[in-house]
Structure formats: structure tokens, C-alpha cells
Design a protein around this nucleic acid. Sequence first.
DNA 1: CCGACACTCACTATTTCTGGGGAGTAAATA
DNA 2: TATTTACTCCCCAGAAATAGTGAGTGTCGG
Lengths: 239, 239
Amino acid sequence: MATNATVEEVLAELEQADTLEAIQGAILELQKYFQVDNMVYHWVDSAGEQYGYGTYPLEWAAHYQEQNYIRIDPVIAGCYKRFHPVDWKKLDWSGKAVRAFQAEAIAHGIGNQGYSIPIRGPNGQFALFTVNHTCEDAEWEEFTETNRRELILIAHYFNQKALEFEPNRTPEQSQPLSPREIDAMTLLAIGYSRAQVAETLSISEHTLRVYIESARFKLGASNTTHAVARALSRGLIVV
Amino acid sequence: MATNATVEEVLAELEQADTLEAIQGAILELQKYFQVDNMVYHWVDSAGEQYGYGTYPLEWAAHYQEQNYIRIDPVIAGCYKRFHPVDWKKLDWSGKAVRAFQAEAIAHGIGNQGYSIPIRGPNGQFALFTVNHTCEDAEWEEFTETNRRELILIAHYFNQKALEFEPNRTPEQSQPLSPREIDAMTLLAIGYSRAQVAETLSISEHTLRVYIESARFKLGASNTTHAVARALSRGLIVV
DNA sequence: CCGACACTCACTATTTCTGGGGAGTAAATA
DNA sequence: TATTTACTCCCCAGAAATAGTGAGTGTCGG
């Protein structure tokens, strides 16, 4: 590929990519094209497992994993609540732990500016595509303004590839819940007690219990709370 | 706007749009540009409410709503399970009710070809951007191949606008949970019982209960299941 | 037509959760 | 320094959830 590959070309190449190396190569090309410090695709599945590729320093990636920083990383927290691409400046960096995290990140070569695009899928899949750089606010502002559309597209393409390469991460396709089971799970998720759910659904509590149990079984859950949590993260119910 | 507005121009216009009319105008422009029969943005929120705009015949839209066709529409069902844009041909149109639905749709002026792009957000928000047309398979194939990227982008932009117009759908902010509370909620969400959580966290079950209760209080939840569900949908914990 | 599946109802014993109290330490913040 | 916040521990009684079985109806698709 030419040194000055355009985004179009890289995307076309990415579409054909069938090895992780090819994807990593595409990231490098894009990083070169956009002239940013880092570019990362990061995925969190509904089981809490992580996965990704990009150009963060290996040391930082390892440290991040090890410290389980995903728990305090405001980029994760912020994007998880949002629909749309977000500039890191807009996130909440207050809090002692977060500031320490930030300082550590910068010390590891992460730029002071960042732009992350959240992407969601069925079953609670959640991914982030991030570009990261060291520069002044104004410059970054212009960069994100200029390239937003292309970055959104790129995020989409990486996501598509990620799915191809991790078919096992795909939907823990659980058996679908029956309508009544969905009703039950939904009402439980919004705080109803068994008695209230049964009354709302106009069925006996005994019957309700059957639904809860079969839902628990289908979801591989060990108790009601677990079942509701799984139903939620797999997108089977919505609250 | 010029009759032959480009996608770029329409998107720029869409970004500035501050009325529903302007959005509807943008849809019409895009439909003209792509020369398709219909173009629709359709949103389903976490309370099951629907909302959208586009160029489906009003009669069909009303009928769809009235019959609650969202329950059997294979486009909805199929896209809900997928990450990526999907051609209607790839969906499952078997089933008696579904075939009847399909026949009815075509009779109401819906094209035989369709391409839908699913988009998801926090709190179970789910939206679809659809283009629909009447033509041969080969022609449609070429159309979608050619325009996929632009359609993905357009979907994103419509979605962004939809959020602006529905601010009440944005995440409720709640008090942040303390680290221990997050631990407790997380472990409960992955199926641990109180006893297991307490043991895992190396605290007494009594103490654990205090965390659960304060989390419940902060989240305005009526029981543990409710609290975990809220913590999940607000992105306070990740499972 | 038959089989699969969803939906409905019932009983009992055991385990777990919830809600009402009270109390002390350490750390961070005002 | 004073105050707030997080963290830890304890008791008890009543409410709710769970486990293990069983069984009859109706609908839909092959």
C-alpha cells in the first residue's frame, strides 16, 4: 500500500483483511494518515472480557489491564452513557483516582487529547474506537471537526472486522425468552416484587415463579438478580 | 437548497436543523438524491415508545402502529440481533404472520427491497435507518454496495438529531456509587449470592448488606434486583 | 395428527433477603 | 479543626425467594 493511502483505500483494504496483522496494519496506516499519537479499537463483551488492538504502548495496555482501570477510566464510563462520539475534554475527570489515572496515562505516552466513538451491539456488546493525541485544545477541536465523519465510518469498519474475528464473542446466543418471561423479567427489573409482578400480569405467584425459573434456566443464571442482569445485558429486555 | 444537493451538503444542513420540518426536509432531499422509494428513520425507546420520520405512506405508518406490527416485523427482529447494516433479503421472512405482513406492506407501497442500519445507544435505545425501494435484486445489490458508507453516516446523523429532539430520553444521573458498592453490585450482577459476595470481598455479610442498602438508596431502587438493573442500565457497573 | 412449546395452577420445606435498630475507625474535605 | 464520607461490624424478626415435583390447556408448524 502506498505511504499516503487515503481513508477510502484503507477501508477497502480493511474490508478484505483476513488476518489480525492486516487489521493492525490498517490501524497503522490510518494513524499515519491522520497523524495522531495513538489509535485504538477496544471491545468489551457482555461477560466483561476485553479485547482490542491499536497503537497504545504495550506497557500501558498491560498496566491498564492489570490494574483493571476499566473500572475507573472516565472514557469508558462516559462513552458507556452516550450515543455519540465524545471529546475527552467533555468527560468527568474529577475525583482523586481518576486524576491519578490520567497522570499515569500521560506518563505512559497517552496524549492529552482524545476522541472516542462508542459503538453498541446486541447482547450488551460495547466497543470504543479512540484516537488520541498530544496537542492544544484548538488544534484538536479542528481535527475532530474535520475528521469526525471519517472517524465514525472507520469505527464502524473496525467493529465489523472485530466481529468476524471473534465469532465466539458473539452473542452468547441464549435461547430467546417467551413473551411472559420477558414480561416477568422486565417488571422485576423495574423494581416490582414477585407479588406485584404476579398481580400486574394477572397470574398467580406460582405461575410467575415458573416463568422466572425457566428464564433463569434459559439465561444460565443462578438467581433472579443474575437472570435480570443477563437479560438486560443481552438486550432481551429493556428498562 | 439546490435540487441536486450532495450528501455532504445535506448532512451539513442536517447538523444545523432545529425543527422537525428541517429533518423531514433532509430526508426528502436524501431520498431524491438516492432515488429510492422510501427512506425512514425509526426509533424505539426503552419504554417501548416509538418515534420517527420519513417517507413511508402515512396510511401504512398508521396501520403499522395500529396493528402493533413492530412485534412481528422481521426487519425489527433481525436488526435487533445484529450489529451491522442488513439487506432485507437476508432476513427471515418465513412464518405465516410475517408473510401476511410482507404482502400487506407491498400493497401499501413499500418496496420489495430494503436496507436497514441498526443503531444502539445506552439504556436500550434502539433505532433503525432504512432505505427501501422497488427493483431487481442485482440492481439493489449494486445500490447498497455503492452507497453503504454514506448510508451509515446518514444513519448516524439522523440518530444524533433524534437525541437532540428527545432530551428527556437521556440517561438519568444518579449519585455515584462508592467502590465497595460497585464491587457489591457487580458481583451480584454476575450471579453471586450475598454469602459469596461477602466472602469474595472479604467482609462480613452484615457489612455487605450495608453496601447493598446504600446502593439501593442511591439508585432509588426498591430491592437488590432493581438496584442491579439500574446500576447496569446507568452504566455504573459493567457485566 | 402429533410433537413442541407457551401458558396456567398447586404444595411444602428451606434458604435468603430486607428493614429496623446501633457503633466505631480512618480518610478526605471544608 | 470540624464535618462529612467510606468502611467495617453486630442482633433480630418478618418477608421474600428458591428447590423439588406434578399436571392440564391451547396454539403452531411439520
